[in-house]
């Protein structure tokens, strides 16, 4: 099992989440080790985004246990959870229209030492440097996605929660995001990636969790991906 061992960075056990009266997540168990890249796969509405939101404390109510670096976070307010070193990139990207690109980039405060500097980030995303004085929401979809990711790299967060980063983007941008995700993994970031694009996910991930109806139904290791085509088809095929 993956929920033991000293280097587990994030672990959810028996997590249930609710929005108002609706029970969205049922008894979720999953864990991520330091430096791992894990995906959450599943159809629309399966509960992938809600898992990320539960980790951040952004759902109405949650129960069970969520630990970050060994620390129980289920009772903590959202901003305290973020301060444990989590960077969150939401599905809708969350670029602020009242802030320009550089203000968007500088918005998230430092949560840990050792984040990337602004110069390193502009080096990695030259487009953002060029457009740093534009209003955040005037950027193209791909640029906004880059900005949403770039701004959490500055904060020193070591655990990144990336929600559907390839959604609605052109293939060439998706390729660039694939390279970027690979680079981040090489730099030692721990990443949870919510994806619909299975091909994108399979290229970069160490493990896949398949989510269905608010439950974890399968966990597939990278080495078993080839032989698990039937499982993927059953849960993800349309």
């Amino acid at each position: 099992m993956h929920d033991t061992g000293a280097n587990v960075l994030l672990s959810l056990s028996g997590v249930n989440s609710f929005y108002g009266e609706s029970h969205i997540l049922h008894d979720i168990n999953l864990s991520v080790r330091e430096g791992e890249l894990v995906t959450l796969l599943g159809r629309n509405g399966a509960g992938k985004t809600t898992i990320l939101k539960s980790i951040m404390g952004l759902v109405g109510r949650r129960s069970g246990s969520i630990t970050v670096a060994g620390r129980e976070t289920c009772h903590l307010p959202t901003h305290r959870i973020a301060r444990l070193g989590i960077g969150y990139c939401p599905e809708e990207r969350g670029i602020f229209s009242s802030l320009n690109v550089e203000e968007n980039l500088l918005l998230p405060p430092m949560v840990k030492d050792g984040g990337m500097t602004l110069a390193e980030i502009y080096d990695m995303f030259p487009n953002l440097l060029e457009r740093r004085n534009s209003v955040g929401t005037r950027l193209s979809g791909g640029e906004q996605q880059m900005l949403a990711m770039a701004r959490i790299l500055r904060t020193g967060a070591r655990l990144l929660l990336l929600d559907e980063i390839t959604e609605g983007l052109a293939p060439v941008i998706v390729q660039a995001l694939g390279r970027l995700t690979g680079q981040l993994k090489e730099k030692g970031f721990t990443i949870i990636l919510v994806e619909q694009n299975f091909r994108f996910a399979a290229e970069v991930a160490d493990r896949h969790y398949i989510i269905e109806n608010g439950r974890v139904v399968e966990m597939i290791d990278r080495k078993d991906v080839e032989t698990s085509a039937a499982v993927f088809n059953r849960h993800l095929g349309v």
């Binding site: 951040m56 952004l58 307010p77 959202t78 901003h79 973020a82 301060r83 969150y88 939401p90 969350g94 602020f96 229209s97 009242s98 802030l99 203000e103 500088l106 918005l107 998230p108 405060p109 949560v111 959490i152 904060t155």
Partner: peptide, 20 residues
């Protein structure tokens, strides 16, 4: 900029670690 961002999307600003 925290205030302006908080006006737009307080949940996300809090998820960045700001005590909204």
């Amino acid at each position: 900029s925290y205030l302006r961002a908080g006006t737009e999307n307080p949940h996300l600003v809090q998820a960045f670690g700001i005590n909204v």
